[in-house]
Amino acid sequence: MPVAVLLPAAEWTARAAAHDARVERWTAPHRERRRRGESHPVLDFLFTYYSETPSRLRRWHPGPGVALAPDGGPAPHAAWRWYATGDDGAVTLDVAAYLADRGDTVRFVRDLLAATAARPAQTGCLGLHEWAMVYRADERRHAVPLRLGRAGTDAVVESHPVRCSHFDAFRFFTPDAVGLNRLRPTRETQVAMEQPGCLHATMDLYKWAYKLSPAVPGELLADCFALAVEVRELDMRASPYDLADRGYAPVRIETPEGKAEYVAAQRGFAERAAPLRRRLVEVCDALLGARSTVGA
């Protein structure tokens, strides 16, 4: 892939430092909680369900077609996988080597995100996936009390239509809740069913960003992570759990006011996710276009 931009050391080191400082807002408290053996019912999800480690999240990458000049010393990226050092000492992503190992992932992510972006946002699910994960179950996914108790939680599920289109949420439904879902998402139908109003599809932009690492620029990865944090907070505020003592005011989706609050927030997140999804598709297109150029 031809190098379009050569970043002087002063610029790329500043961008790397800014990225580290930005994500440290979340990674430092997580590391401290882990050191103390404490859990967090909202934020741990971003480091456990999503498998990127704090240390890898803190790494800044320039993205394809960008070289890091050695005028301040060699970039540490030179020792990282899928990077190459040119005769001039500049370090850049080796797109051919990256695609040789990760090409199938790039194509899948590109197809999924493009298909999702092409659909209208559906905003009527009310976050009932979290309720369906504890429906008629003695065990809870989090060591947090249910806001409405066992019977009240089940009654909310039974009195609302459940329309979850996201397989990675649906697969955690309790056995009794599975039959209540009006959709049947599977891994095989993921590309055909994901839609941009889904909170989990929006949070997953972070997953696809780190799955494409190191081809995704650090700024885009951090943008996806920051949005995922906000979406996760809404996801749990609208859940059946009582998180008030953690500082999370409930979104009472069992009430008309709570429904309206949830739908408005869901629409807002879908709008904010759209440009991030588009930027990730552009990264995939740049990578795959470079492959075509190399093969020509």
Rank of each mutant, 00 (worst) to 15 (best):
150 R>E: 07
138 D>G: 15
35 R>P: 03
114 A>Q: 03
63 G>V: 00
161 P>V: 14
54 P>L: 14
150 R>G: 07
57 L>R: 04
131 W>V: 13
104 D>Y: 01
110 R>W: 01
158 E>N: 12
91 V>K: 01
69 A>P: 00
73 G>C: 10
127 G>T: 09
71 D>I: 10
145 P>W: 12
174 T>E: 10
175 P>H: 15
164 C>G: 10
110 R>M: 01
96 A>F: 04
102 R>S: 07
142 H>F: 13
69 A>V: 08
58 R>P: 01
58 R>I: 02
75 A>E: 00
158 E>I: 10
113 L>T: 01
114 A>V: 02
56 R>W: 03
135 Y>D: 11
163 R>E: 12
97 A>M: 05
143 A>W: 04
131 W>A: 15
44 D>L: 12
56 R>I: 04
66 V>P: 00
126 L>W: 04
100 A>Q: 10
112 L>A: 14
135 Y>H: 15
124 G>R: 14
49 Y>V: 09
45 F>Q: 09
162 V>I: 15
174 T>G: 15
148 L>P: 02
174 T>K: 15
98 Y>Q: 04
123 T>I: 15
169 A>E: 05
74 P>G: 14
55 S>H: 02
40 H>V: 09
138 D>S: 15
72 G>Y: 06
162 V>F: 10
131 W>H: 15
40 H>Q: 08
127 G>P: 02
178 V>D: 10
163 R>T: 14
47 F>G: 07
141 R>K: 14
178 V>F: 09
36 R>N: 11
159 S>L: 09
95 V>C: 06
103 G>F: 03
166 H>Q: 08
38 E>F: 06
58 R>M: 09
59 R>W: 02
143 A>I: 10
95 V>Q: 02
35 R>Q: 13
53 T>Q: 06
106 V>Y: 00
39 S>Q: 12
106 V>E: 01
130 E>N: 08
181 N>W: 06
148 L>M: 10
128 L>P: 01
147 R>C: 07
67 A>R: 02
150 R>D: 07
73 G>P: 01
99 L>F: 04
75 A>K: 00
118 A>V: 05
130 E>P: 01
181 N>P: 05
129 H>W: 05
132 A>W: 02
52 E>P: 02
88 D>G: 12
53 T>Y: 00
79 A>I: 04
47 F>V: 11
169 A>C: 12
61 H>T: 03
